[in-house]
Design a protein around this nucleic acid. Structure first.
Length: 489
DNA sequence: TTTTGAGTTGTTCGA
DNA sequence: GTCGAACAACTCAAA
């Protein structure tokens, strides 16, 4: 390519400038770069983003544009079908090449493959890179050559391949190519995409909780490896403590790479500058491993968000109950730890991992509502809603997934609350109508004597719901449903 | 091919 | 109050 012909860098789920292989390659070439993002709601099979994710995306795009501008380029945002836009833009700009980092869903791969073919037919180079994973799904198999279906062997295979590649530095300077006037294509301001809510503006709690963009992501990682990682192995289960990394939305939008997280954590532990133990480090790395495994499963099971990974569950007697689903979504189940989690989700776009398991188990096992309804709700409300992790984790809890939670693991919301939120701090924060209850009853208000409830201003059934289903009955019903499945099979 | 041990995250019951 | 076993049966990975 001549020095004058620009390289198009197509950003997708890699909204960062450091450790971005596609951007690094473009910058090294010395050519002017035309950085683009295509908000694609038109390509077949691409799942539309949920509302919370749309909110996050807006901030992430603005932040990326700002950091590209600091280096002499800019982010040009387009709206429409990527299949139409990317080749047309490449021609209009006289681009010598288009580069991007790979995606792993079947529909996304189909779009990218079609574009790659169209570009090459037009005589334009197209290259893709791994910017999202430590190991791409096709690089790990069992010894027999098939896909791995259990996490522990996956983790061992992953470790056996060695450490992830070292992260790439951000390009120090870029030469921005002008957006082509010809070709009839139009770049739009981020605001024009209508990604953020206006009336009503329900994003206040999310703005308070998060800093979108690469700088926010780096700050979060730094805070985690220098502080939060000490004790992570135990404390990560405590929703009443700020013990998790909270990197998930940053990872989801690629504001930070998994390689950066991995190496920063290893370096911090090895340097001895933080009190994290090798066990704390290993637990964190294994969480990154679960993310990798989810992408692996998605790649090998494109229908992961829709179909039971274990086909025998297709006969499962799910209940359809819009009213109960609504109670769960609104955090009105009558089980404080469940309601706290659902309200944290609604307000901040995020829920502590331990609590996600509890609320998911409740929906699927206590209410016998199809895990897909829960997956859809999380998809819409989580800022970290990830096409791989969300589906894989719901299936895991439901017992329909790979290496799944065993059928008899039915979380008791009272015991889980008492164990992981022993002082009721988490419940008090998110379910304020129970704030004055003593810790001894805060996870089971219906067991409190009347005077205690009165003193705390709690009236069950009006100020706070009674349990929508008794735990014992729900547990027995779920076990029976699961037994009916194995009897049929 | 067959066999064998293992499989993220729990709860309940009865001794 | 503590502790160990039962809770389905299955499927996977590897020998």
């Amino acid at each position: 390519m001549s020095a004058a012909s620009p390289v198009i860098v197509w950003f997708r789920e890699d909204l960062r400038i450091s450790d971005n292989p596609a951007l690094a390659q473009a910058a090294e070439s010395g050519a002017p770069v035309l950085c683009i993002y295509v908000h694609d709601e038109a390509s077949p099979g691409i799942r539309p983003l949920g509302a919370a994710s749309r909110w996050w995306l807006a901030g992430s795009l603005r932040a990326l544009d700002a950091s590209l501008r600091e280096r002499g380029a800019a982010l040009h945002v387009l709206h429409g079908s990527a299949r139409d836009i990317v080749p047309a833009l490449a021609r209009a700009a006289g681009a010598g090449a288009v580069v991007w980092n790979r995606r792993y869903g079947a529909a996304e791969i189909a779009v990218d493959t079609g574009i790659k073919t169209a570009l090459r037919e037009a005589g334009i180079a197209a290259s893709s890179f791994n910017g999202r994973l430590i190991h791409e799904p096709w690089t790990l198999t069992t010894k027999a050559g098939g896909p791995i279906r259990v996490y522990t062997p996956y983790w061992r295979a992953m470790r056996a391949k060695g450490a992830p590649d070292m992260p790439l530095a951000a390009p120090a300077a870029l030469v921005g190519a002008p957006f082509p006037a010809a070709g009839g294509l139009r770049a739009v301001p981020v605001d024009a995409l209508g990604l953020e809510p206006t009336s009503p503006d329900w994003a206040g709690g999310m703005r308070e909780a998060w800093t979108r963009g690469e700088e926010g992501a780096q700050a979060r990682l730094e805070a985690f490896v220098t502080g939060g990682m000490a004790g992570y192995g135990e404390a990560r289960n405590r929703p009443d403590m700020p013990a998790t990394s909270q990197l998930s939305p940053h990872l989801r939008f690629g504001e930070i790479s998994v390689r950066q997280c991995w190496h920063a954590a290893e370096h911090a532990e090895a340097s001895g500058s933080v009190r994290a133990s090798p066990g704390d480090l290993e637990t964190f790395l294994k969480e990154l491993g679960w993310r990798e495994f989810s992408y692996y499963l998605l790649h090998h099971n494109p229908e992961l968000a829709r179909r039971d990974y274990a086909p025998r569950f297709e006969a499962f007697p799910w209940r359809s109950d819009a009213g109960q689903l609504d109670q769960w979504q609104r955090g009105r189940t009558g089980y404080p730890i469940v309601d706290a989690g659902m309200r944290q989700l609604w307000t901040t776009g995020w829920m502590h991992n331990r609590v996600r398991m509890i609320v998911a188990s409740f929906l699927v096992k206590h209410l016998l509502i199809d895990w897909r309804r829960g997956e859809e709700w999380f998809w819409d409300t989580l800022v970290d809603a990830d096409p791989a992790s969300n589906s894989a984790s719901w299936q895991w809890v439901a017992g329909t997934g790979a290496d799944a939670s065993p059928f008899f693991r039915i979380f008791n919301p009272v015991l889980q609350g008492a164990k992981f939120d022993p002082d009721g701090i988490y419940v008090r924060r998110w379910v304020p109508e129970l704030a004055k209850l003593p810790s001894s009853v805060i996870h089971a208000p219906w067991t409190a004597p009347r005077p205690i409830l009165d003193a705390a201003g709690v009236r069950l059934g009006s100020s706070y719901p009674s349990p929508m289903v008794p735990h014992d009955e729900a547990r027995a019903r779920a076990l029976a449903a699961l037994r009916s499945l194995s009897a049929k099979a």
